[in-house]
Each structure stands twice: as C-alpha cells, then as structure tokens.
Design a protein around this nucleic acid. Structure first.
Length: 746
DNA sequence: GGAAACCCTTAA
DNA sequence: TAAGGGTTTCCC
C-alpha cells in the first residue's frame, strides 16, 4: 500500500465556531495536485463545501477521514505569506481565519472565467475576396457582415452584429460557412490602456522636499524597518516625495505600495503614477470590475507591476517583497474596513513593513493623534515636517461666524448674514462658492442657541443625545437624565436640534439667492458611476455658481475658480457622541479650508459655529495643527482614551430589541467574569448602551466598549472571550460584531 | 449552512 | 409519554 497523504483544510462555512482545520484524505487521482494553497471541494456533514488546503501530512490525525472530492481551481490560490497575513488579521481583529483568508485572496476567488475572449476575424484572404463577394451578392446581410469583419477585426459576435447592422444569426451562419473564424485571445484587460505615458521634465524639489526624499532614501538603502510620518501642509508637494522614494526603492529591486483614500484615487492621481512608472503600475480600486482587478492582481503577483496604487484593500496585494509602503492621508477613517475583518490599512501596513523589513511612510496635513504621538521625540516613528507650499501661496484666511449672535439678532435661518453677503459678492464677481456641511450630525443633539452649550455626560466627556422619551442619554455608558427645559448654563430657553441636510440647504439657498445656479453633491446625487466626477467637472467648467455638498466636496479636483468656502455648521461633527469628534472636526475644517483660493485670486473661508471658542475650531481657523494636538492630547490622556489606551467595541445586532439587550447583558457578564479571573482591574468596560445609531436597517444595536492602557490585559480578556463564545452572539437571530481599534462608535 | 441531537414544554 | 418546537452542537 502506497503512502497515504492527508490534507488540512480550512472549510468555507461562514460560521466563526468552525475556526479550525479538518483533515481529509487525498485520493490517488489528486496526488500531486492537492498542494498547500489550493482550493478543494470536500464533504462536510451532509453537504459539500469548498475549503483551503493549509497543510499536508502523511499521518492520520482522526479515526474517520473522508476523501477530498475534487480540486476547485487548477492554480494555486495563496502563498504561505498570504496565509500568515490572514492569520495575523484573524488573531488581531478577532475574526475567523477563513473569513480573513477569503478577504486576503478575494480578487482571485472572484475572478471572472474565462479570461480568454472570443474574437472574430474574417477567414477570407484578399485573393478570394472577389469570389466571395460574388458568392454573397444575393445575401446582402452576410456580405455586410463580412465587409465589417474585414474593416474591424477582433470584435466579438455581438459587437460585429451591431457594427454590420445584422442579427446574431447572420454571424453564426458565416461562422458555420467558414467565412468567419473565431480566435481566442487571452489578452489582459487594461482599464488604463488609453492613458499615455508622458515623459515629464523632472520638477525641481523644494529644500523641504529633497530633505524628505533624502531621509527616506537613506532608510531604504539601509534596508531596515523604519516608519516616517510626513507632516506636510496642503500643497507642500507630498506626492512628488512619494514618487521619488518609489523610484529609489525600485532601484533596490523591491516593490512599493501606495494607498490613497477612495475619494483621492481620481483619474488624475492614476495619470500621475502612470506618467512616471508606466506599465509598472497596477491600480486597485473598488469601482473596477472583478476581472480587471484580477488582472492587476496577477501582474502584481508575477512581479511585472512593482508599483501598486490603490485603496484600502491594496494593502493586501500579493507584492513579493514590499520595500516601501506609503499611506497618503493616513488619518482618513476610510482606511478602516467596516465589515469583518475590520482591519485598519495602517496597522496592516505596519505588520507587513515590519515583516519584510521595509519602510513605511505615513503622509498627512492633519495626522491622526495615534501617529503623531508615536512621532514625538522618543517615539518609534521619525517625523518629517514640510511647512511651506510649493507655489509659495499663503493659506486662505478663515473667518469664524458666531451663530449665537445671529440668533440674538433675530436670524434663525441656516445662513448667517455675513455668509449671504459674501455669496452675493462672489456671485456678482462671477467667482465660485462651495458650501460645505456635514450631514453626519444627529438630529437628537441638543444645543443652546444662545450660549452654544452642549450637554455632556459627566462620566465620558461625550455629548448626550435627546430621545423621544424626553430624556438625554450617553451612548457610551448609558447614563440618563431628564432633558432640561432651559439651558443649565445660561438659563436661555432656545434649546435647538441639530442636523440640517444638503437638500434643505439647497432649497433655502435657492430662496435666498434666486439668481444663483446651484449644484448639489452628496451620496444621493452620486450613486451612478462617474457622477462624482461629472458634477465636479461641470462645476469646474463654470456651469454653476455654488456647489453644495458633504465631505466629498472637501477633496478631489483643484477648483481654481473657487474663492469662497462656507461651512454651514462646524458643530455638527464637533458634538457627535464620539471621542474622536474633536479630531474629525479639526481634520475636516482644515481640509475644507485648504479648498479655497487654489487659483490666482486669494481664497476666503467662512465657518459658522455656535462654539467659536472651541479649540478644534480655533486651531483649524488658524491652520495650526500643533495647537490642536496639544489640547486634544490632554483631553485623551485625562479620559484614558486612545492613543493612550487600546479600545475594543462589541456591537450586538438583531430585530428584537429586548433580545439584543439581554444578549449584550450576558456578554457583559462574561467579560466581567474574565476580567476578575485574569485580575485585569485596569480594564474599563462601559455599557451595554444603545449605540448612537440605535436602530439601523431594522436592526436594534446595543454595544459594549472596553478599553485599557494595558494592551496585554485587554488582549487576554478578549482572547478568553473569543475562545469561550467563538465570537457569536448568545441567542438566535442575533449578530455580534467585534471592532478592535474602532474609528467611530456609531 | 444544515442536519442531528438535545432540551424543554405541553396536552392527553 | 409522544409529539412539537426551539435551540445548540457538530461536521474531518
């Protein structure tokens, strides 16, 4: 009897509790074919499922072993380093290994088959042509089709039928007659085939830029692991620094990954990389087809595309030996995936860079507190500052408009008199305005319109939100109080609600300035592919005077015609029930402020707010990161919030409110048990409390938040929890989501 | 994800 | 005590 072979298989059943391998016998017919990294079909209970082969052995580990039925794909699906990456993701973010592996190799699993495309060519050679024309003289449709095939070879059947103006059956008949031949091409899809590679004149660098390039280059040449935080004001030329550093790493024979936020991966961005690196660039973004993504993926894998440019998931790309990873706008929350595995691209980048002994460069004008803290003296990152703009222009002037005074003087509308006045002025001068508002505000927030006071939880420093039962509630710890009739601070009785949508702003704007041409850009008007670019380019062409929109107007195109940016309500993000609200507000306002005055004329920014004295608003108005950082860091330290603590959020979801709440209570009890058993008294646990978005898509949502300055203790508790519960919610029709290092708590 | 096993209730 | 339903446990 020949030596038998057994395979360890990670079975693809979407249940956390099966986070382990099962052993199957490799049948004779599949010997040599079933290897590490292949996908197989196996019997599992009464059903047949697919699974990943993650190990092979000659020894049987269990008494009853079933046989592998078949191979699913002919080629390998993953390599060893990809499995380790998946295992790291699963361990760090508490998600199933299978789920993590599926995420890591998603483009391969979703690849569209076949990659070969059937194309039609005329089988008629020039010598026979007159004879064939004669033969088809009484078949005009067929004749037209042949002529079309001669003129445009390489179309598929449907395309040829359309070009010739005949039906599909005519084409089929010609194929049967042997006058048309089908050839299969396996050419790669190249979504950017029409892009031209333009050799640019090398731009000369500013002193700050060349210093940055020099520092990073040195680290690349030394070949060790090193992290840089590139803190550069908007317009300081970070992208050129990236490109130069990538050139350097390519010279060492290694590869580079650049991550940009979804909204920044515009055609211009791609063009910039293509112009410098041509076919060496592989682009990965979420709007490309599965087939396109797969093609880029395999070009990365086989080494023909050493430069990767993409969004969050590009950090999982199968780059053989990443020598440099760049994360642009590293503070952007879109780097966090909001479904399992809830990974942060920056954390994954850190893992990969460390593992491959590569350089990681984080770039931002408004770095996250996490990153900036690590870049302080004595931290593990190296800070590089770029403080001047390459065009030498000053940052736009920012004016704060105190909305409390507007209310006092009898204006309770959306727009302050100052903003209206300015908009009229711009309209008159044929200059453009952007009106920015953040729709992510909650209507339930209660603010005193006279003094700007917002009620906060005495325990959490988090804004309280108003509920239909007339009470205010903290969405971290579930603290509740009766809502006051008057402002507890100034005694005023003008307590107001918040949350103004883009549509309402558009309407009121149309009423106030009937002669203005207005464009609106938000999630509702940009559902179609490319509509985002369409609206922006229409605005850039001057087809409207005012653009009203949410965050998406804060980024994207340079709009030189814009000389005024108005922010409707800075407070709507500032008082979100989230410990990062101040940071988000500062980042958004700083970002928006950078939009105005990109052209020749200087720009102006008007920010309306009920709390002009708040440090986040103040610092943003002066373009002063350092002032903001100093204040914010003290708040975080005092409350023991990240980056001074590690945080985990557990969210229970389900259709039945009481069931969800009971499950959350049960989880809390579990956690308390683990904490006492492990002596983890340094761990804070709050909740269960209803999440700020207490009901979403029919689901009720309750959450529990854990945090601790002692990462190891928190980890032990969570590992214990994962082991005992398997990460599933106690109770039927309930779901549990575990979010490690959450970006927001809504 | 789905079948089988287990567990508890209920009604004659 | 068997049937019924709901829930938990396995699946190499």
């Amino acid at each position: 009897m020949s030596n038998q072979l057994f395979a360890d298989v990670l079975v693809e059943v979407p249940v956390f509790k099966n986070d382990r391998t099962y052993q199957y016998r490799v049948p004779e017919k599949l010997e040599g074919l079933v290897q590490f990294g292949t996908r197989v079909r196996v019997p599992f209970g009464k059903q047949k499922v697919t699974g990943f082969v993650v190990g092979l052995s000659a020894r049987k580990a269990v008494a009853r072993v079933k046989e592998i039925i078949d191979l699913v794909d002919e080629s390998l699906i993953f390599r060893e380093d990809q499995l380790s990456l998946a295992q790291w993701l699963a361990g760090y973010y508490f998600c199933g290994t299978v789920k993590a592996l599926q995420t890591v190799v998603a483009p391969v699993l979703k690849k569209t088959t076949p990659r070969a495309v059937a194309r039609l060519y005329s089988a008629v050679d020039p010598v026979q042509l007159p004879a064939v024309r004669e033969q088809l003289s009484r078949a005009p449709k067929k004749k037209a089709a042949i002529e079309a095939a001669l003129e445009c070879p390489g179309l598929n059947k449907r395309e040829l039928a359309a070009v010739a103006g005949v039906s599909l059956s005519v084409i089929n008949q010609l194929c049967a007659m042997g006058l048309l031949k089908v050839k299969t091409d396996s050419s790669m899809r190249d979504p950017y085939a029409h892009y031209k590679i333009v050799e640019q004149n090398p731009v000369s660098l500013t002193g700050e830029q060349s210093r940055a390039v020099r520092d990073v280059t040195r680290a690349i040449q030394q070949g060790g692991h090193q992290v840089f935080l590139l803190h550069g004001v908007t317009g300081s030329g970070k992208t050129e620094v990236y490109l130069r550093c990538i050139e350097q790493v390519l010279r060492t024979g290694r590869q580079a990954i650049t991550l940009v936020p979804e909204i920044s991966l515009t055609p211009q961005m791609v063009r910039l990389y293509k112009a410098r690196f041509g076919r060496d660039v592989a682009v990965l973004h979420s709007r490309m087809s599965d087939g396109e993504r797969y093609d880029e993926w395999s070009r990365i894998e086989n080494g023909s595309a050493p430069v990767v440019l993409g969004v969050r998931s590009a950090i999982l790309a199968p780059v053989p030996d990443p020598g440099l990873i760049i994360i642009d706008e590293e503070h952007e929350p879109s780097y966090k995936q909001d479904e399992a595995p809830r990974y942060h691209a920056r954390a994954v980048a850190l893992y990969r860079a460390r593992k491959s002994r590569g350089v990681l460069m984080l770039g931002s004008a408004t770095p996250s507190l996490e990153s900036y803290c690590r870049a302080l003296p004595g931290g593990s990152y190296k800070l590089i500052n770029m403080t001047t703009r390459i065009n030498g222009k000053n940052m736009p002037r920012v004016q704060l408009v105190d909305m409390r005074r507007e209310v006092q003087s009898g204006n309770s509308g959306i727009f302050s008199l100052a903003l209206l006045q300015k908009m009229r002025e711009k309209l008159h001068n044929n200059e453009q305005t952007i009106i920015f508002l953040n729709r992510r505000g909650f209507k339930t927030l209660v603010v005193c319109r006279e003094c700007g006071m917002v009620l906060k939880c005495p325990r959490c420093d988090i804004s309280l939100t108003y509920h239909a039962d007339g009470r205010l509630r903290c969405h971290y710890c579930n603290y509740r109080v009766q809502a006051p009739k008057r402002c507890p601070d100034c005694g005023g009785n003008q307590l107001g609600y918040f949350g103004t949508g883009t549509q309402r702003v558009e309407m009121e704007l149309a009423a106030a300035l009937p002669e203005a041409r207005i464009l609106r850009m938000d999630a509702d008007t940009t559902t179609r592919k490319g509509s985002h670019e369409q609206i922006l380019s229409a605005f850039a062409r001057g087809e409207a005077d005012i653009l009203v929109g949410t965050q998406m107007v804060a980024k994207g195109l340079d709009l030189p015609g814009v000389t005024l940016v108005g922010v409707i309500n800075a407070d709507s993000t500032l008082h979100m029930p989230d410990f990062r609200a101040g940071e988000r507000t500062f980042q958004l306002l700083a970002q928006v402020a950078g939009r105005a005055g990109r052209g020749d004329k200087p720009g102006e920014v008007l920010i309306q707010t009920f709390t002009p004295e708040h440090y986040a608003v103040q610092a943003a108005s002066r373009h002063d990161y350092s002032a903001f950082f100093q204040r914010e860091v003290t708040v975080r330290k005092d409350m023991g919030y990240p980056p001074f603590a590690k945080m985990v959020r557990l969210l229970v979801l389900g259709k039945d409110d009481t069931a969800v709440q009971q499950a959350a209570d049960k989880i809390r009890q579990h956690l308390d048990g683990f904490v006492t058993r492990l002596n983890g008294e340094k761990i804070q646990i709050v909740g269960p409390a209803p999440a700020p978005l207490a009901r979403l898509k029919e689901d009720y949502r309750w959450h529990i938040i854990l945090w601790s300055a002692d990462y190891r203790q928190l980890r032990l508790v969570m590992e214990q929890f994962w082991q005992v519960t398997g990460g599933v919610a106690p109770g039927k029709d309930l779901r549990l989501s575990i979010d490690v290092d959450p970006m927001h708590i809504i």
